[in-house]
Design a protein around this nucleic acid. Sequence first.
DNA 1: GAAAAACCGACTATGTCGCTCGGATTTAGT
DNA 2: ACTAAATCCGAGCGACATAGTCGGTTTTTC
Lengths: 158, 158
Amino acid sequence: MKLSTKGRYAVMAMVDLARHAQAKPVSLSDIAARQEISLSYLEQLFARLRRAGLVKSVRGPGGGYRLARGSHETRVSEIILAVDEPIKATRCTEMGVAGCRTDRSKCLTHDLWEELGNHIHAFLNSVTLRDVLERRLATHLAEAAALANARPPMVAAN
Amino acid sequence: MKLSTKGRYAVMAMVDLARHAQAKPVSLSDIAARQEISLSYLEQLFARLRRAGLVKSVRGPGGGYRLARGSHETRVSEIILAVDEPIKATRCTEMGVAGCRTDRSKCLTHDLWEELGNHIHAFLNSVTLRDVLERRLATHLAEAAALANARPPMVAAN
DNA sequence: GAAAAACCGACTATGTCGCTCGGATTTAGT
DNA sequence: ACTAAATCCGAGCGACATAGTCGGTTTTTC
């Protein structure tokens, strides 16, 4: 799961789209103006979102985009996976699982990254567009706080 | 909290260092050979780790690096924060907190990213080098699984 | 004095990001 | 039928981070 501003822009745009969903589709120029993102860049992002089946387009004047599913059925993880390049191959995946398993001393951190990836994906998969719109993040906040306190000394984390 | 291969390399090297800690310090050429990372690149990473106070150096032949603290007192989050550039400024931080707070429609996703950042940091801060060495990630695994199942339909996540 | 190591700084190749530009296609309104 | 609004599409570009390389210097042990 890659995390870049690209994914962030896509989520911002999708939240905007969900927020302004009416009978008429929402045009990218409206989103561009509201979110201060370049129109051409948005076009590129929405091309990917459309190919991923997250939005549907309506061409011609008065056209624009609509969510393919309801805002409570569209998960943030899907948006990010749709726009970001597939995750840069780690040394592990280059060597294949076999290479990682056979020589464990070279890849002691494998489990750690896998765990972190699962963690991030689980978090983003648990949040829908509707959650973001309605700011329903309290439960996640509580969970994160609990985790942070699991081991005491929160050493100088800058 | 930025996540790149740079941080991964640093953690790999630090785990290797912790694993091979003896009376004598560990030389970077040994780590470079074992982990298949370029020596010069390792030097750059360890310069930062030293400045961050995570390792101590011994110069001259037979020299090398030692952990500044014990492996159970060195957290993965510290390593990553030491080597990665400060996180790329988001639009939010550019505008300052005020800009984000005053016009909320532009920044509906602010809480989401903040939450995610907390989440990642909390996870990496809960793991020490010793945990990685001894593969003590079971508890984290359980937590991640619980989160993933919090909301039912794990939609096509590629 | 030789050699092993940490230190240091400059340079480079590659790739991604965020974006621009110039179009083409489709379609609603007149 | 014409115009304009919108999606679609591909090429290219400047800036930046990554993952190095290279060539040295300093320190210290033998």
